[in-house]
Simulated assay, not measured.
Amino acid sequence: MTEHASRRAHRYAAYFAPAIESAWWEAGSNWLGRCAASGAPRPQPVFDGLPAELQRKATAAPRRYGWHATLAAPFTLWPHIGEATLRDGLQTLCQAWEPFAMPALEVALLDDFLALVPVQPSPALRAVAGACVTGLHAFAEPLSPAELQRRRAAGLTPEEDALLVRWGYPFVLERFRFHMSLTGSLRDTAPDMVEALRAAAQRHFAPLLASPPLRFEGISLFAEPAPGADFMCLAQMELGR
């Protein structure tokens, strides 16, 4: 388990993240321009036909959250619960699962952003993500009215709104879609530049996408130290341990 000492953070999240210092971790961190384990910036790869300024802007949102796929979205701990208790709870959750091979991934436009997504559904991914949502819910404070309004402003279906109220996030359980974000919203980006970003991501990750599938071997605890701060990887906890 990789750990970094920290005081109580503003918010916590349970993510899937490749093992720190693995080829997958390095590729994702370099693409985003920041390592969420060290907090250090990374020089982003340069691609013909893709302006560096556009690349930097397009990756700003996922860069703050770090290289990951969301399992349990960021939440605030109840005041009476400490970080150590949360770690223990996540460790217990990990013990119930064994590592498994994930489906192959591909670069795709998901709604209005680019992400790495599975080429086929994975019941195992959905089951682990669901266990994180339901298993960690008791640690999380309910969303504030302001946060509920912020989430609803994006336009939710009745089903998604019910999930938001019950679990604090609208895209969980039956609405869960595993994805590793490569950009933020590209809604206002010209189509040719969206294609340039997609092609660049395809070139960047091609060696890994052509390799044996990425394995799901652990759940990572990330934290937002203070409101608006970059998320940091606090611990990577192995499944089955």
Rank of each mutant, 00 (worst) to 15 (best):
E224R: 07
P225V: 03
C35I: 01
R198A: 13
M102H: 04
P18V: 03
V46P: 01
E217F: 00
A223K: 06
S181A: 15
A61S: 14
A61M: 08
H4T: 14
A61V: 13
R198Q: 15
A146I: 03
P43T: 12
Q44D: 00
A127Q: 14
R126I: 00
E160Y: 06
D112F: 07
A146F: 01
R203T: 11
R151P: 00
F178E: 11
F231V: 14
S38P: 04
P207A: 07
G184C: 08
P99L: 10
A140H: 06
A201C: 09
H68Y: 06
L125E: 07
G82R: 14
G33A: 07
L90R: 04
Q95W: 00
P121Y: 04
R241F: 00
V194Q: 13
A19G: 13
F47E: 05
M232V: 12
A60S: 13
W31N: 01
Y12I: 12
G168F: 01
F178S: 13
A72W: 02
F216S: 10
A72G: 01
L197R: 04
D111S: 15
F216E: 10
G49H: 09
P142F: 04
C233G: 03
P212S: 11
A5H: 10
A23R: 15
T70K: 09
W31A: 07
L221N: 03
A14W: 11
P213R: 13
R34P: 05
P118A: 04
A96P: 00
L71Y: 08
R7Q: 12
D111Y: 10
F205Q: 03
E217I: 00
S185D: 00
P225R: 04
Q149C: 10
L197E: 05
T134H: 04
F176N: 14
Q91M: 10
W97D: 07
A206W: 01
R177S: 07
Y169E: 00
A58T: 05
A210F: 02
E21I: 01
A196N: 08
C233D: 04
A40R: 12
V165K: 11
V128I: 12
R126L: 07
